[in-house]
Amino acid sequence: MNQANHSQRNTIMTEEIIIAGFGGQGVLSMGKILAYAALMEGKEVSWMPSYGPEQRGGTANVTVIISDQRISSPILSRYDTAVILNQPSLDRFESCVKPGGTLIYDSYGILEPPQRKDIAVYRIDAMDTAVEMHNPKGFNMIVLGGLIKVRPLVETENVILALKKTLPERHHALIPMNEEALRRGMEVIRRME
C-alpha cells in the first residue's frame, strides 16, 4: 500500500490571475512568460488555457496561478488580478475580480470601461503604444510590463530570462524589442479613479 500524507499548511502568498482577450493577441504566451519567470524564482505555478475552438479573432484566456505552496485548482471563478484586453472579456470577468483585487484593461476597443469601485482599476493603452513603437507584436509585452509594475509578482530580469527560455532560438534577435516593450508598459500604465 503506497500513500502520501500532507499536513495542513497556513496560507502563504498566492496570486490568481486571469488574462483574457482575442486569440492572436499573445494572451497565452504572455501567461507562459509570467509563469516561467515565477518558476525561475522557485514558485509553484500553473497555466491553464481555454483550449476551445477559439483561434485568431475569437476569445482566448489563460488562468495563471503563482504561489508559495502547492497549487490546488488550476481552474477558478474568482481572481486576484484580471488582465482584460477586449470588451467581451471585460463583460465576462469584471465581476469575477475579488474585492480589493486588481483589474488592468487595454482601452483599445473597450466601449464600456470597468465600473467596479471596490477594486483597483488600471488602464494601459498598450495597443496605441505598440503602434507608436512600430512594434505591434510587442503588445502583450507592454501589457505584461504594466502588470508586473502594479503587481510586482516577479522580477523584471526574470521576465527577460523567461523570454529567452520560451522563445525559440531563431527569434532571440527579437528579445531587445520585447524588453523595450516590457519597460514601456511599466511607464504607460495608470491608475483610474
Binding site: A35, W47, M48, P49, Y51, I71
Partner: peptide
C-alpha cells in the same frame, strides 16, 4: 483535458 492542457512545473 485539464491535466493534458495545463502547464506546470
Amino acid at each position: 483535458g485539464i491535466i493534458g492542457q495545463m502547464m506546470e512545473k
